[in-house]
Design a protein around this nucleic acid. Structure first.
Lengths: 209, 209
DNA sequence: GTCTATACTGAGATAGAC
DNA sequence: GTCTATCTCAGTATAGAC
């Protein structure tokens, strides 16, 4: 009915060129968010690509395989985790556990970071991911016991509580529960005086992926 | 070269007829193991079928969709969890937390039970699984606080430690780590005097799926 | 450095026989 | 109650252009 030129197919503007390292990092960040939300197998390389604003084959091109991408995400995540812990270690020994706890909560501000970790920790049976996940977990444990100087008991409690926090965030408890349902009580114990901060980090709407 | 009758194609013996309920339960058990090992998205209905010794379409036929199967697994799992807790409640109040902890550890003897739960707890963002997972989690919390009469602090600690145990099992820590690596220390704190029992529950070899 | 086109495979689900 | 055959789509990965 009308001219051909008027029905423009909206050229899907190619992503602007970027230094490889920069692009790599932005894809890792996107992948972290998506893996965190949909777990390893539930994530497609296309999800990641769209979250990062690049094409699906390019994601594969840069990282080789989806699995390698996931392993790269893991490395980066644990690196950030330990870095955050180390950064929190200045100050007097008395309040250190508290500060480390807060450092941990700070990591919630990166979408999917802790949930990607949790996802990896469930894949111990995978022949490639499993060993990597165990190694990373052991690194964290060793860090707490040696570098951070925590006693076994303290480190145990610290880790436990971290895992529960991960669970609550993975469950998206904040999005669905109101002030009732008893969950708020638990939330308060897990992240005292930080409920609002935490809730803000949880994705509320449907994501692009 | 030889007679036709001698090269038997090994008729893949059809599963013996079973009452629907019985078959349903055996598929649920198989599905629990597989979902626990490979997470929701990583599990195929064919994995489950083979673990249960039936055909893939039959699994779908009985449960409608993979998702419904997973939700059924969740129901069953939480049912077993609460049942085990309730069963442990007889006796004096003093040692009750200990007995509940032991009841929890007892659940490790069913392959994948706690790991399926953990997997579900990571899928809070899923439009159908998320709400179900939150509801189940809330049920457990309410149980601890009301029926089991735990204080908020106690319940919090109890849950935390449960989540860490789930993590360790999901990681298959026992399979890969020997007496070194520091993990044994943590293991001992998580499941005192039960290390061997726990390790025995962790699948060691390649499974049929 | 990044894309389009496409080959290939795997997996959920349906149809219908026994 | 259970299977075989099969349709169909989604998703990883490759080839090759720009």
């Amino acid at each position: 009915m009308s001219s051909v030129t008027s029905t423009l197919p909206a050229t899907p503007l190619p992503a602007p060129r970027m230094a490889a390292d920069e692009r790599r990092e932005s894809i890792l960040a996107a992948a972290t968010a998506v893996f965190g939300a949909k777990s390893y197998a539930g994530t497609t390389t296309d999800d990641v690509a769209r979250a990062a604003g690049v094409s699906q084959p390019y994601v594969v091109r840069l990282f080789g395989t989806k699995q390698k991408l996931f392993l790269a995400v893991l490395d980066r995540t644990v690196g950030k985790l330990l870095a955050a812990f180390r950064a929190s270690m200045a100050g007097d020994a008395e309040t250190q556990p508290t500060r480390m706890g807060e450092a941990y909560l700070g990591l919630l501000s990166e979408r999917g970071l802790l949930q990607s970790l949790s996802a990896a920790f469930l894949l111990g049976g995978d022949p490639e991911i499993g060993p990597a996940a165990r190694a990373h977990f052991a690194d964290v444990w060793r860090f707490l016991r040696t570098e951070a100087g925590m006693g076994a008991e303290t480190a145990h409690l610290f880790l436990s509580q971290g895992m529960l926090i991960n669970t609550l965030v993975g469950l998206r408890v904040g999005t669905e529960y109101g002030a009732n349902s008893g969950m708020t009580e638990l939330f308060d114990l897990c992240v005292p005086d930080k409920v609002d901060v935490i809730l803000a980090q949880i994705p509320t709407a449907t994501e692009p992926w």
